[in-house]
Amino acid sequence: MFAIIVLFPNYASSTWCLDELLRILECKHSVGLQIVPVFYGVEPCDMRHRKGTFDEAFRKHEPRYGEGSDKVRRWRDAFSEIASYSGWHSKHQHEARFVESIAEHIHRKLIPKLPSFTKNRVGIASRLEEVIKLIGIMFAS
């Protein structure tokens, strides 16, 4: 349902990260995967316009894959696309609180407020709690 992409200053220097980014965007377009970008120690506008370390990284990829390479072009396009999404920005936030707020946001999306049909049902609460544990999400009572 979700892909959380942590974008950091050296993200574009990793071809593995860039290939994963392409795959994540393919899933978004084909099956509606929701993407939550986390801008960790980077400015989204620097990424979008490929400034600083991002520009350097792409310039280093070009000699390896060829000037005007289709692969590098696709990486650049994917990188610009993900940088244009609204997401979480770590600027001026305590790291633990930052991670906690992202987890809470995802939890609210995955486990919406329980619908009223679960009220007054014998035994449903414990079973629902077990299902939530199985999918790896802490149940907040």
Rank of each mutant, 00 (worst) to 15 (best):
Met1Asn: 09
Met1Ile: 05
Leu7Thr: 02
Thr15Pro: 00
Cys17Leu: 05
Asp19Arg: 14
Glu20Pro: 03
Glu20Tyr: 02
Leu21Thr: 00
Arg23Leu: 11
Lys28Leu: 04
His29Pro: 00
Gln34Arg: 11
Ile35Arg: 04
Pro37Thr: 01
Val38Gln: 04
Val38Ser: 04
Cys45Glu: 06
Asp46Arg: 04
Met47Phe: 01
Gly52Ile: 01
Thr53Met: 07
Asp55Met: 03
Ala57Ser: 10
Phe58Leu: 04
Glu62Gln: 10
Pro63His: 04
Glu67Phe: 06
Val72Lys: 00
Val72Leu: 01
Arg74Glu: 05
Arg74Ala: 15
Asp77Arg: 13
Ile82Glu: 00
Tyr85Thr: 02
Gly87Asn: 05
Trp88Ala: 10
His89Ala: 02
Ser90Gln: 07
Lys91Glu: 12
His92Asn: 14
His94Trp: 04
Phe98Tyr: 15
Glu100Ser: 14
Glu100Gln: 12
Ala103Trp: 05
His105Cys: 15
His105Gln: 09
His105Gly: 13
His107Gly: 04
His107Gln: 12
Arg108Glu: 12
Pro112Ile: 02
Lys113Ala: 10
Pro115Tyr: 03
Arg121Ala: 06
Ile124Glu: 13
Ile124Met: 10
Ala125Asn: 10
Arg127Asn: 08
Glu130Trp: 06
Ile132Arg: 08
Lys133Met: 11
Leu134Phe: 10
Ile135Pro: 03
Ile137Gln: 08
